[in-house]
């Protein structure tokens, strides 16, 4: 169980993007998070994945604090894959930075063998996003924060990416927080859905 308790964070003094947010994500659970742009969805996601430190509040994984070094058990999957990879590395090196996915796993995510030789700018956004998602699934990862990972993708690429991720998550009982605008997509993927509005979480209908 990943628990966030009373998370408060703001970029400017006296103004908080997140106001005392508490949230629980169970192993194997898919939770949808929506909200207007600028509502702080991405900020919350990055707090959960340890990329931002909250001004107040705590994060616990199975009742214990999250590790400060080593592989972080909560991984953030960002919206723009082009920014999430080193532009000077070939895909082979990018994909193997955190762990070494097997050829079968590569195939399941539709990553062609010929891609490994290429540079990131030689892949399309959809192709690169698959590489970024698979890279984030290292053994030891328990939760994923999928931050609008398919909002730039066409429907087929989007469906393929989510199906592959769903298989992997089910096999390993990963908990997934899906951040996005697309109500139909969140409904498809998530049993439970919440909305972020004026810094607070509301249950979504």
């Amino acid at each position: 169980m990943l628990e966030a308790c009373d998370i408060t964070l703001g970029y400017r003094r006296g103004e908080s993007v997140l106001r005392g947010i508490s949230l629980q994500l169970a192993a194997g659970e898919w939770l949808g998070l929506s909200g207007a742009s600028g509502a702080g969805k991405s900020t919350l996601g990055q707090v959960l994945a340890g990329h931002l430190a909250p001004r107040r509040g705590s994060l616990r994984l199975d009742g214990a604090a999250l590790p400060r070094r080593g592989l972080h058990p909560v991984q953030w999957l960002p919206q723009v894959p082009e920014l999430a990879v080193n532009p000077r590395w070939r895909i082979d090196r990018v994909l193997n930075e955190a762990w070494s996915p097997s050829a079968a796993q590569r195939r399941r995510f539709g990553i062609g063998d010929a891609w490994l030789e290429r540079y990131p700018h030689e892949l399309s956004g959809g192709e690169l996003q698959r590489v970024v998602v698979l890279r984030g699934l290292a053994p030891g990862v328990r939760y994923l924060i999928a931050d609008e990972i398919s909002s730039m993708l066409d429907a087929i690429t989007q469906a393929a990416l989510w199906q592959a991720l769903r298989e992997e998550a089910e096999a390993r009982n990963l908990g997934v927080l899906v951040i996005g605008h697309d109500a139909a997509l969140l409904q498809r993927l998530c049993q439970r859905r919440v909305r972020l509005e004026r810094g607070q979480l509301l249950a979504s209908s």
């Binding site: 994945a49 340890g50 990329h51 070094r69 080593g70 592989l71 972080h72 991984q75 953030w76 960002p78 723009v80 920014l83 999430a84 990879v85 080193n86 000077r88 930075e97 955190a98 984030g136 290292a138």
Partner: peptide, 26 residues
């Protein structure tokens, strides 16, 4: 501040690794 460097840190890579493999080559 680049996403890929921040991610590298969350993959458990050491400061030295990031300097040698991400920062210096750039």
């Amino acid at each position: 501040q680049a996403d890929y460097v921040r991610l590298s840190r969350r993959f458990g890579k050491s400061r030295g690794y990031i300097i040698r493999h991400h920062l210096l080559p750039a």
